[in-house]
C-alpha cells in the first residue's frame, strides 16, 4: 500500500518512482531517499569494475 496512486482516467503509477536497492555500508537500503547527502554523492560516483584478468 505504498505510493501507488489511482487516477480517475484508468491509469496507475503516476508519480511513482523506481526502487533502486543499493548497499550502503554493508546493509541494503530499498530507496536512496533516506540516504544522507554524502552517501548519495558516493553512490553517484561509484564506477563499475571490469572483469578482464
Amino acid at each position: 500500500m505504498t505510493e501507488k496512486k489511482m487516477e480517475n482516467n484508468g491509469t496507475v503509477g503516476a508519480g511513482v518512482n523506481f526502487e533502486r536497492i543499493r548497499r550502503i555500508t554493508g546493509y541494503l537500503v530499498g530507496t536512496t531517499d533516506r540516504w544522507n547527502n554524502a552517501k548519495r554523492a558516493e553512490e553517484r560516483d561509484r564506477v563499475k569494475h571490469s572483469l578482464t584478468r
Binding site: 555500508t25 554523492a41 558516493e42 560516483d45 561509484r46 564506477v47 569494475h49
Partner: peptide
C-alpha cells in the same frame, strides 16, 4: 573536493580499476 571521504581502506569508488586488482 568531494562530499565524502572514501570508506576505510577502500580504493576510491570513482577510480576505474579491475575487480581482481581491487
Amino acid at each position: 573536493d568531494r562530499e565524502y571521504y572514501t570508506n576505510s581502506f577502500h580504493v576510491p569508488v570513482y577510480y576505474p580499476i579491475n575487480a581482481f586488482r581491487k
